[in-house]
Simulated assay, not measured.
Amino acid sequence: MRIGNDQSIAQSRPLSGTGKRGNVPSPDYNDFHFNTKTAPAMSDDKYHTAIIEQAKKDQAAGKFQSESAGFRNLVKSYVSAVSPDRKSIISEGLRAVYKNIRKEPKTFNLLDYMFGSVKYSKEANDDVSYAEFYDSNGEMVASYSNGRWISYGTKAENARETELWGIYNHAWNSAAKASRENQGAANGSAAASIDVTG
């Protein structure tokens, strides 16, 4: 984790949970965009089937992807199975920051970024305005800036989410095509049964 006063990530939104360490509120791990490691709810084969069924259900309801609560819940469950333990990474990082009373340098060298897990500079009053959190692979998994949290997908999370989108989109498009064909057939049958006599 690195802490400073950088305000370059201003497009994030408040994602605060109920806890707090120092002046930093906890992220809301229930938010759709803030995953943390959980055990898979089902096997990948069952997820595959559930994704297809959700796509068919959403298409019939005229919803697509995040418009559907069922889709959002499925994405969160599916992706969280490969998520880093953001909750522990953030909790341990903040604990180390607030426990350590010595000031850290404001500039860090390459070795600090490669091997360190907590890098920070505290204000005189211990307020934290900016922090970056990294997993053991060196991937940034979250940042905090002036009361706002943002989660960054890891390579594994992004790959799994892309896989889900591919399955879902294919099933949704197939359901839409079948629906159009059924409507066309119904319209064709109706038209054929109309008697147009003079």
Rank of each mutant, 00 (worst) to 15 (best):
I90S: 02
K20N: 12
P14S: 14
F71G: 09
A50F: 01
R72C: 14
N137Y: 09
L15D: 07
F133L: 00
M140S: 05
M140P: 02
D44P: 02
G17L: 04
Q65I: 09
Q65L: 13
Y29P: 00
R148W: 02
N146C: 09
Y98R: 00
Q65M: 14
L15T: 08
P27T: 08
S16H: 11
L110P: 03
A131N: 05
R86S: 13
G147S: 10
S43G: 13
V97W: 07
A55W: 03
Q11C: 06
G22L: 07
K37I: 06
P25G: 05
F32P: 04
G138H: 05
G19I: 02
K103Q: 13
S91H: 10
S151L: 03
E53T: 11
P27L: 07
S77C: 08
K56C: 10
R102V: 07
N125K: 11
Y152N: 06
K87F: 02
F115C: 06
Y47M: 01
L94C: 02
V75K: 06
N137S: 14
E139Q: 15
K20R: 15
I89Y: 01
P40Q: 06
K87C: 02
T49Q: 15
S77Y: 09
H33M: 11
N23G: 04
S68I: 07
E139S: 04
G138E: 08
E104T: 08
E67I: 10
Q11A: 11
V141Q: 06
A41E: 14
A69M: 11
G22C: 05
M114V: 13
K56V: 13
R148C: 07
N73L: 09
G62Y: 09
Q54C: 13
W149G: 02
Y120G: 08
K87N: 09
Y152V: 11
V24C: 08
F115V: 12
T49N: 11
E92P: 00
S66H: 12
S77E: 15
A81F: 02
K20M: 14
V128P: 01
